[in-house]
Computed example of a mutant assay.
Amino acid sequence: MQNSGNTILVTGGGSGIGAALAHEFHAAGNQVIIAGRRQAALDAMAADHPGMATMTLDMTDAGDITAFADRIVEQFPALNAVLLNAGIMVAEQGIDLDVAEATVATNLLGPIRLAHALLPQLEAQANATILTVSSGLAFVPLAATPTYSATKAAIHSWSLSMRAQLKGRVDVIEIVPPGVQTDLMPGHAENPDMMKLDDYIAETMALLRQQPTPAEIHVERVKFLSEATKRGDFNQVFAALNQQH
């Protein structure tokens, strides 16, 4: 991925990791468009970043995604990168269908639908990139958030396949965060066991700036989870993560 000169869309760009990465991309000399459901959060970001654009988007609505893609391509014909960051994480007791279906729609179907809608635009660019956001929980699931963990495992698998299919046409880079101090779930922002957002973003951006850019962005903190199978201690890591003895 080229470091500057991109026109990049960031979904979920009004808060958390998405907002922090949007800030870094903007500062590096990229045209950044942030998208999300809450116009007020988008406006607050844009006010602090002159030149940053905003567009509302509901990642659970297939029709809205199609219409959004048409609008953004018309308004930003140089669009060559998309960061598929928007996501929700909700604890589930047993099988909660409402939570499960909303999580799948937001975290899995939404990114696939938006990537599909933007793919002709991206394939027409000389340097195009799709950035996905999975999680350390894609590799070792958190029992309290079964559907979230499953959608992130699916995004990891999807990223592997699309990287192979689009090789030579569109780069596919997977960002794999650990637990980070954001408002993704209640209490995360204050949890001392989570990685500080500033530290996470600094390490992630350093990896994204490498040339060539790694296909997967694993900060050191996430490797406890993401490399558990490779190390041969998956069962122990699963037990530790889920406090089983």
Rank of each mutant, 00 (worst) to 15 (best):
N3P: 06
T7L: 08
L9K: 07
V10A: 11
V10Y: 07
G13H: 01
G14I: 01
S15T: 15
G18A: 06
A19D: 00
A22Y: 03
H26K: 10
H26N: 09
A27C: 10
G29K: 07
G29R: 08
N30P: 05
Q31F: 02
V32L: 06
I33N: 03
I34H: 02
A35Y: 02
A35D: 07
R38L: 03
Q39C: 04
A40K: 08
M45L: 13
A46T: 10
D48G: 11
D48M: 12
H49A: 14
P50F: 01
M52L: 15
T54W: 06
M55H: 12
T56V: 13
L57P: 03
M59V: 13
D61A: 06
T66Q: 15
F68M: 11
F68D: 07
R71W: 09
I72V: 14
Q75I: 08
F76T: 08
A78W: 01
V82N: 02
L83H: 11
N85P: 10
G87T: 03
G87R: 03
I88R: 08
I88C: 06
I88V: 14
M89P: 00
M89L: 11
E92N: 11
Q93I: 15
Q93V: 15
D96N: 15
L97R: 11
L97T: 14
E101P: 00
E101D: 15
A105E: 09
L108E: 09
L109I: 13
P111V: 04
I112T: 07
R113M: 14
R113S: 11
L114H: 04
H116V: 12
H116D: 15
L118S: 01
L118E: 05
Q121V: 05
E123Q: 15
Q125V: 07
A126P: 12
A126Q: 15
A128S: 09
A128I: 05
T129G: 05
S135A: 08
P141F: 01
A143T: 05
A144F: 00
T145E: 10
T145L: 00
P146Y: 00
P146T: 03
Y148P: 00
A150R: 00
A154C: 02
S159W: 02
L160M: 03
S161I: 04
Q165W: 06
Q165Y: 09
L166W: 05
V172T: 06
V172K: 03
I173R: 04
E174A: 01
P177K: 07
P178R: 00
V180D: 02
Q181C: 11
D183G: 11
M185H: 12
P186Q: 09
G187V: 08
G187W: 06
A189F: 03
A189Q: 11
E190L: 05
E190H: 08
P192H: 09
M195Y: 03
L197C: 10
D198R: 09
D199L: 14
E203Q: 13
T204L: 04
A206K: 13
R209P: 01
R209V: 02
T213R: 07
T213Y: 04
P214W: 04
A215S: 12
E216V: 05
E220K: 15
V222E: 02
F224D: 05
L225A: 00
L225T: 01
L225C: 02
A228S: 14
T229M: 10
K230S: 14
D233Y: 06
D233T: 05
F234L: 12
N235R: 12
F238M: 13
A240G: 13
A240Q: 15
N242R: 04
Q244M: 14
H245L: 14
